[in-house]
Nucleic acid binder design. Sequence first.
DNA 1: AGCAGACCTGACCAACCAGTCAAGGTCGTT
DNA 2: AACGACCTTGACTGGTTGGTCAGGTCTGCT
Lengths: 197, 197
Amino acid sequence: MTTRIQRRNRRKILDAALEVFSAQGFRGATLDQIAGVAGLSKPNLLYYFDSKEAMHRALLDELLDIWLAPLRAMNPQGDPRGEIMGYMRRKLQLSRDYPRESRLFANEVLQGAPRLSDEIAGDLKDLVDDRAALIRRWIADGQLAAVDPYHLIFSIWALTQHYADFDAQIRLIRGDKDPMDGAEGFLDSLFDRLLHP
Amino acid sequence: MTTRIQRRNRRKILDAALEVFSAQGFRGATLDQIAGVAGLSKPNLLYYFDSKEAMHRALLDELLDIWLAPLRAMNPQGDPRGEIMGYMRRKLQLSRDYPRESRLFANEVLQGAPRLSDEIAGDLKDLVDDRAALIRRWIADGQLAAVDPYHLIFSIWALTQHYADFDAQIRLIRGDKDPMDGAEGFLDSLFDRLLHP
DNA sequence: AGCAGACCTGACCAACCAGTCAAGGTCGTT
DNA sequence: AACGACCTTGACTGGTTGGTCAGGTCTGCT
């Protein structure tokens, strides 16, 4: 049974942990930092989570659901170009709404995905293989331009996540302008031109 | 005056440091790890470099030259589409030849570019602003499709660096296949379609 | 060979870090 | 009010980490 206090504190801890892990990476983050952000004492963190590792694990588990939802939502019965454009837009929306999650994921993969390799090689690979096959069928039907489906998916990931992961760089170059201003229009025309048969 | 031994050992240390920093991030890397990879003792590392920070600094300084060269090489007098396609291909080649440098850079920017903000807001911004102006002229001349030049540059960065930075993920999804196999052809047709007026 | 300066290292230190624990405080229930 | 379960923390520990230092070894030059 979970109490009201448990729910509130677990949430506070995971939110603080996301803040710190996404900005410093796993090894760079310290429990003292997380405790400071959460407004709790370090031993109290360890009352709710067995270890630093466990906090990170909990975040990754939450993350994957959010992260894969847009690709899962792609509809095999829908209009091919519309489905892919919709996927791209939803993924871009994730970068806007969940930039810390994007950076947490990027940190993890950048370091060789030591804690995510099972999920990536399992669930994610299966999902991507399935969508790649779907895209190939759409291409065979003449509804899409002939593009490599894997590189198409990777390009959507690269372009959308870039705005969250490299936010610091974009801000320094664009100044006060919102980093994502104009991004959706640009990506719309990029993929629209790419996908036309 | 620098001796033969100095040149050899500085090189060994920087190469080992690049290996470890790019895989673990600055805080995640330890001098013991770097010493192990370099085949030197930890105090010996600190005989050649004042601090861990100094090794990282030296790597970032080397990195920036390599990293900005392709954008510098863009020729205002050249053929617009050819220049941009050439830039993209050279950038992709960097991901192939210098994946560790790409990940070092990604780690740094991901964590808010604490040690690179001056260079990014200075040299890099100036260069990007200059190239953006050039691209705008090309568009005004009707030689390129009307795209936002900043997003065009960001998209080239995102797409090319993705293959180095997210190599672990791509490998897990594509299996034995070379992660970059087919990438150049895909990116060629993507940018070719985007840039046609 | 012998010397000066460059190169190298074992042993050490202070700071930091994840995690423990015993003791005390708080909350919901009766 | 009183009880037990839940919650919180100061003080601590063992291990790690960046960096120091005194003294030793090697190298190139005369």
